[in-house]
């Protein structure tokens, strides 16, 4: 069910990016899409009553010298968190570029309406 909500959010973002006529709204739609995907990735690693996946000395079994099975079963998956961090950084870069292009376009055309910004045709 949470996955379905994520997907719904993704579709809302997609709808906004594809249908809206205002450049800023399109950018917002893209951002919503990205956060939906990030949310989805984070939820992949979610575990009910999970522990933070940080290995310290208490996690080791003194007898075998290995990480205890209890910790392994309780810890959430750390990989999606790393993925989301990376994708947030990428998203920051794209968002900054998109916004700056929006500003420059507004400077040139004096409008955010993409139906009036169409010098390119064919």
């Amino acid at each position: 069910m949470p996955y379905a909500m994520c997907f719904l959010l993704f579709m809302i973002g997609l709808y906004c990016a594809v249908v809206k006529k205002n450049m800023v709204k399109i950018v917002i739609g893209l951002a919503v899409m990205e956060y939906a995907v990030n949310l989805f990735l984070i939820m992949l690693g979610f575990r009910v009553n999970g522990a933070a996946p940080i290995v310290d000395k208490t996690c080791y079994d003194p007898a075998t010298g290995r990480v205890t099975a209890g910790f392994l079963n309780a810890a959430v998956d750390p990989l999606p968190q790393a993925l989301v961090l990376t994708s947030i950084v990428i998203g920051l870069g794209t968002l900054a570029l998109l916004i700056s292009i929006c500003i420059r376009t507004y400077e040139k055309y004096g409008t955010f309406d993409i139906t009036q910004i169409r010098k390119l045709k064919g």
């Binding site: 920051l92 900054a96 916004i99 700056s100 500003i103 420059r104 507004y106 400077e107």
Partner: peptide, 19 residues
Amino acid sequence: SLFLVIFALSVFCNDFRCK
């Protein structure tokens, strides 16, 4: 780089406002 990004955006906006 984040400082540069925000700086550049503020320059853009300001230029536009003057114009």
